[in-house]
């Protein structure tokens, strides 16, 4: 896969809340399985950078924003529903699954 199709993901979390911790763990797992080597994940604590909340239109936390590939998509929740996370990220699990 080319670099332009690299997944750029930003996960917004609220400190160390249970949802946030779960979301981070779940997401890391999913990315390692389905997007190994083809993604860039940035984690932002909204408590630290509250001005980003307005900029990025964040309401619910945790929120994952897929910046690339476009269009931008928002995924909210603790990423426990794997099928939905994959759908939200636009990954067809059957393609990549080994």
């Amino acid at each position: 896969m080319s670099n332009s199709s690299q997944y750029q993901l930003v996960l917004f979390i609220s400190g160390a809340s249970p949802n946030s911790v779960r979301a981070l763990n779940n997401l890391k797992q999913i990315c390692e399985i389905h997007l190994k080597g083809n993604y860039k994940l940035e984690v932002v604590d909204v408590y630290q950078q509250p001005e980003l909340a307005k900029q990025e239109q964040i309401i619910a936390l945790p929120t994952l924003i897929r910046k690339n590939p476009t269009p931008t998509r928002h995924l909210i929740g603790d990423m426990s529903d794997r099928a939905r996370v994959l759908r939200g990220l636009g990954i067809n699990p059957s393609d990549i699954a080994i």
């Binding site: 609220s14 949802n19 936390l61 995924l75 426990s80």
Partner: peptide, 25 residues
Amino acid sequence: VHIERSEIEETGEYDLEGLFIRLGY
């Protein structure tokens, strides 16, 4: 606050802390 259902995928437990932080800020 822009909310567009089609752009949002719910993937599990969440809260509206983002709104709180945003408003608080």
